[in-house]
Design a protein around this nucleic acid. Structure first.
Lengths: 114, 114
DNA sequence: CGGAGACATTGATGAGTGTCAATGTCTTGT
DNA sequence: ACAAGACATTGACACTCATCAATGTCTCCG
């Protein structure tokens, strides 16, 4: 049971005992991994950062293509990934698409790192 | 300058103005994306969770193969990814490899989600 | 109605990745 | 020295993904 670095009772060092099995369920791991996968791209992090640090709290998609340095379809793709991961919401007003972050989702991920 | 949802002065709705350029540098985005990529896998999240929730604060590699449900080389590969991402440290004692989390690294990632 | 602009979608391609079987490298005990 | 066990590495394969060019779908204005 007790794992000892220096053997205490005998010269046999124990290992490979029992671990807390329900550290993280497979479903929880799948859900969290999908969320972190959405953050595992520099272009997406920059997009998210641009939206999060905008003074108005929301950013038009046309304001993202330039700073990110990727083509318009690529930025659109990344925005779709972020939206499907629940990290941003989109709101079409006229010709433009406005994006804003979902703070609750970020808190959810922060809590997972504890 | 001012982005207005309902036009106020004229019927022209402005868009595509200026955004805070240094929301996140390319270097910062690359570093963060690499760290999040290490978390973007269910098996790796389970490994990290098993280590983090261990009562001793460290876990022998042999204790991970079973609960994770992957082969020994696969678990070893995931541990290598976590180590290279700075999320865990390894410590060889005798025949066994002991792993423990790096709390500072987790804090670093949590701070990035703000 | 017709043109222009904003954004999304599709298709294709090259790079990256998770997985395991087989094998290699240590360390320990006999 | 030899055998056994723990862990890492290699090679191979299937799969996913980031990217862009081309195209499609809207909305607005003249």
């Amino acid at each position: 049971m007790a794992r000892s670095v220096q053997p205490e009772t005998t010269t046999i060092v124990q290992c490979c005992g029992v671990v807390g099995d329900p550290a993280l369920t497979v479903e929880q791991a799948d859900s969290l991994a999908a969320a972190f996968a959405a953050l595992a791209d520099p272009a997406r992090l920059r997009v998210l950062s641009l939206i999060a640090t905008s003074e108005a709290g929301e950013v038009c998609a046309c304001d993202l293509v330039g700073p990110v340095g990727k083509s318009q379809p690529t930025v659109s793709h990344h925005l779709k990934v972020l939206r499907e991961a629940g990290l941003v919401t989109s709101d079409k007003r006229g010709v433009w698409m406005w994006y804003r972050v979902v703070p609750e989702r970020l808190v959810e991920l922060r809590d997972a790192l504890a």
